[in-house]
């Protein structure tokens, strides 16, 4: 596939042949414009996988399986949106999975032990996520500890708080939150994906059309330059840590409400998996770890591709164990392809 792309780009970038290429040229220009979008590669992969799995198992696109797919895309995509903002501004949050696990417990504690109403409890829990993000940001930006280390510490700290306060036992969804609220926040079939799409749409606009997004790119692309231009780089970075924490908390609440249990084991051996899946989704979707570039829609597509693989393998009857092999190869392959395509884009016309 990459070879045809190269040919197309090379052909489109080369000198125009005189006459006789009118329609061809339009198609080629459209293709060119499409390929220049960062999300293009991952969209093609996603569509390719749909075609493959649907032809292998006709129930892949059935109603029930689409619900499955949406539910195993949404929580990771929501966490990935935060990671994209952070990665673009040149940082990373390894503690997002722990925050994801803590948040539904916060809801449980607030409602069952402190008698808080469900909606305020959800809002407060998301704010606790933001607070954890603030802690990450403060230690990283003000105390100048690399975010990789800061958030690694925070991962164990928050995970430990979850295990200690819950005594490592799962909890029930609080009775007051059951019913309408639980359906709105995760239990209803399409609830998670609707929240996810709203969040993706919102932050896509934030990243591409607002000052906050522009400054996020500037901070990640040229930190000193951004500071010289008078951008408040500390505020941008800490803000993005807080957004990531809040989104991780919200995704955790949705996921707990959907699965109808508040599970502390996510903070054990699996606590890294939510975060790593989210980072993988962001990276597969075209976000550079080096900062300065990334796309929220790409992260959604990345999360969707990972869900397709997990779900499709399951349907075909391949065990879950080789899934990680595929995931690893997918990350490596997409990174290599991204570097390669970025070079092509750069070499091509504007």
């Amino acid at each position: 596939m990459s070879e045809t792309i190269e040919n197309q780009v090379a052909a489109a970038g080369g000198p125009r042949q005189p006459g006789g290429v009118g329609r061809n040229l339009i198609v080629r220009t459209a293709f060119d414009a499409f390929m220049r979008r960062r999300e293009a590669t991952i969209l093609l992969v996603a569509i390719g996988l749909i075609i493959y799995f649907q032809s292998a198992r006709s129930e892949f696109l059935s109603h029930d399986n689409l619900v499955n797919l949406s539910q195993s895309t949404a929580p990771f995509a929501i966490v990935a949106v935060g990671q994209v903002l952070l990665l673009v501004s040149g940082e990373i949050d390894l503690s997002a999975g722990a925050t994801f696990t803590l948040a539904p417990f916060m809801v449980h504690y607030l409602i069952d032990f402190y008698g808080v109403f469900p909606i305020p409890a959800i809002v407060l829990s998301v704010l606790v996520g933001c607070l954890i993000g603030f802690g990450n940001g403060f230690v990283t930006v003000v105390l100048k500890v690399p975010s990789f280390v800061t958030t690694l510490g925070m991962l164990f700290l928050v995970g430990g708080i979850v295990l200690t306060t819950s005594h490592a036992f799962p909890a029930q969804i609080p009775e007051a939150a059951q019913g309408t609220i639980q359906r709105w926040f995760g239990l209803a079939e399409w609830s998670e994906i609707i929240w996810c799409l709203l969040i993706v749409a919102f932050f896509h606009v934030v990243l591409t059309r607002t000052r906050w997004g522009l400054h996020t790119i500037a901070v990640g692309g040229n930190l000193l330059g951004a500071r010289e231009a008078g951008i408040k780089t500390t505020r941008i970075k800490i803000g993005n840590f807080m957004i990531t924490g809040g989104l991780a908390a919200f995704a955790g609440i949705l996921e707990a409400f959907r699965t109808q249990t508040i599970d502390p084991s996510l903070s054990g051996a699996d606590f890294a998996s939510v975060m790593f899946t989210a980072v993988a989704a962001a990276v597969i979707g075209g976000t550079a770890l080096a900062g300065g570039s990334g796309t929220v829609i790409g992260a959604l597509l990345g999360a969707f591709v990972l869900a397709e693989l997990r779900n499709g393998f399951n349907l075909i009857g391949i065990s879950a164990n080789p899934f990680n092999i595929i995931l690893g190869l997918a990350i490596l392959g997409s990174m290599i392809l991204n570097v390669y395509l970025a070079n092509l884009r750069r070499a091509g016309r504007t």
Binding site: L214, H215, I217, A218, G220, G221, N222, L224, G225, A226, E228, A229, G230, I231, G292, S293
Partner: peptide, 19 residues
């Protein structure tokens, strides 16, 4: 500035209006 304070990843016009 000597280092120009430009952001490579941004367009010309976004750089011209940075901040």
């Amino acid at each position: 500035y000597q280092d120009l304070a430009l952001v490579n990843e941004l367009t010309v016009y976004h750089n011209m209006f940075l901040n």
